[in-house]
Amino acid sequence: MAAFNIWKPIKYLILTIMAIIFLTPIYVIVVTSLKPLDEVSLANMWALPTAIDFSSYSHAFSELAPNFMNSIYLVIPATLLSALLGAMNGYVLSKWKFKGSELIFTVILFGMFIPYQSILIPLIQFLRNIEMYNSIAGLVLTHVVYGLPITTLMFRNFYANIPDTMLEAAKIDGASFLGIFRHIIIPLSITGFVVVAIWQFTNIWNEFLFAVTITNSDSQPIMVALQNLSGSQIVQWNVQMAGALLAAMPTLLVYILLGKYFVRGLLAGSVKG
């Protein structure tokens, strides 16, 4: 096909141009964050630094480190708990269906799409009443509850692919609901747990609305601190860029190392069952 040979370089050209455009923000972040203060100016945004200077990183790190740790303390329990509950729900909703279980699933699923503004005022009143307002524990509870719809959806769809005959056989051998869950379902769900955990980790790490309304000062997660840093007039622009990279690093690393599972989560979470 002659036409193929003409089009091929054009396709590459378009893809390459688009790729360069998509990478410009990363270029600006990296280049700016490595510049010494006297080279940071609006006019020289695109220029490479004359010497590599890590001082903006040490500055950003000293500003953001406590919040970075807050995010760690938030994201680990919230991810594990929401994944575990999602697996339990998914198991029942895919393998132990009953009259009305589809309706229950839809009722749970709707929670995934609501704008969280529509539950925020009661949520904060509630967290104040149980004295979990302005605490990491309160944010963990919030993320576990509002993570339930997506983790339930992901595990339900994941378990739907495990053949029912496998469970039938175990049942004939006298295995109980819990026995099947522990000895058949859990061992088969490792991939499912990885996909769901990566998805929840990324979402909770990046989340901002709950973080900014439920916590203040000392218990704020990283994204709120980054926003404060960038909104501050006295903080230099190179420090903001270094802070942005620090804040983005965990999810970027997960994407680079486990991108395949990240994309699977994206596809699994996007199409409703």
């Binding site: 790490w205 990046n206 901002f208 980054l226 960038s230 942005a244 983005a248």
Partner: peptide, 12 residues
């Protein structure tokens, strides 16, 4: 960019 936060995107 899907792995990034909207906050990071906004700041940049």
């Amino acid at each position: 960019p899907m792995a990034l936060s909207f906050v990071v995107t906004g700041v940049v």
